[in-house]
Amino acid sequence: MADVELITDAAQQGVSRRSFIKGVIAAGATASTASYLFRNSSPLAALPTAQGSVERLITLTVNGQQRRVDVLAQETLAMTLRYKLGLTGPKLGCDRAECGACTVLIDGVNRYSCSILTHTVRGQEITTIEGLESANGRLHPVQQAVVDEGGFQCAFCAPGFIMSMVATVEANPNPTREEMAHALSGNLCRCGDYNKILDSAMRAAEYARRRA
């Protein structure tokens, strides 16, 4: 198998490019060094906030780490994760809670991060696809199941589907194929790869049972 990182990581393109593209902020790095949602030069920074409304600087628990981050009142979690915390795993397919590509776990429950106000999940455990792998680089059983089934085509939907699979196998380690389909019905795949996705999900449940 090819070394994926070698090929995909923009940071390895060469010295000049490395100096230019910072690429994604590595997980765990201090947040907001590259805050693309709002900057001090933005008119948003100067907006006064009403007394009693939320403080912008908050701490989020993401993939087991405490992250300090400056969050606008109207900011969605998907935007915070993608543009402030460098976690581009959750994808914006519709930004309207319809496609599921942005699915993350909030306290273990799968939800659409495009349709969560970041401020409403303070103090809750946020898990993105980046947080599934163990520290030693071992894939989560669900990820492994997908790899073993050769799951997904374009895979833009994959992070969302995988997060829903994780939530499902945690809640119901012994689902029928039909139950699994219902559990994944909040995620859309336009490649139409549902058959293989269900195969992967059923294998994921099997792996999860085996691990338990």
Binding site: A2, I7, T8, E130, L132, Q143, V146, V147
Partner: peptide, 11 residues
């Protein structure tokens, strides 16, 4: 060869 990147969000 790109599947691991796809399932880990690195893609």
């Amino acid at each position: 060869p790109d599947l691991v990147a796809k399932v880990t969000g690195r893609a």
